[in-house]
């Protein structure tokens, strides 16, 4: 139970529902990736973004949805090539022609929360009373308390937010 990003049974445009990384070309790069067929799921038909057609000659290069390639990687497997530490804060696959984007959907991100790697507090977490809890104890999470909150919010909730129950 929770807020659904994608209503069941629909494929929303521009959404890459798979877990893990998707290779995309950033806007700045006009290199054509070879051998990667366009993905029908990303075609422009019924795309919400197309309600607002791009002005001619402008920003079309920002989103080139066709040559997306999905990499399926099991949990815990580092993404290739594994040397991203050399480009902190920058394009992670700076050396890959065409570039890469790490795209994760909500479900995948939520699953990562349960990883042991995700549970210990950062060693440099500042202690701000009422805001952070640097102790090992996890603060109550949105996820764990979603049920309570929904109950508390009651009927009025459906009027504003469709819930995926």
């Amino acid at each position: 139970m929770g807020v659904a990003w994608n209503p069941p049974g629909t494929t929303l445009p521009g959404v890459l529902c798979g877990r893990g990384a998707v290779i995309r070309r950033p806007s700045e790069t006009r290199l054509v990736a070879s051998g990667v067929p366009p993905q029908p799921a990303l075609s422009m038909s019924a795309a919400s973004c197309c309600r607002h057609p791009l002005p001619q000659g402008q920003t079309l290069s920002r989103d080139i949805p066709a040559p997306a390639k999905r990499l399926s990687l099991p949990d815990g497997v580092p993404l290739p090539p594994g040397d991203y530490s050399t480009t902190p804060g920058g394009s992670v696959f700076g050396t890959t022609p065409g570039g890469t984007r790490f795209i994760y959907d909500r479900k995948f991100l939520m699953e990562c929360r349960n990883s042991p790697l995700a549970r210990t507090p950062p060693c440099d977490l500042p202690d701000i009373p009422g805001v952070t809890s640097p102790s090992a104890k996890e603060l109550r999470s949105e996820t764990n308390h979603a049920h309570n909150e929904e109950e508390k919010l009651g009927i009025g909730e459906e009027a504003q937010f469709d819930m995926d129950i």
Partner: peptide, 8 residues
């Protein structure tokens, strides 16, 4: 998540 889980 390590940050987020330790923030209110």
């Amino acid at each position: 998540w390590r940050f987020y889980s330790h923030m209110v």
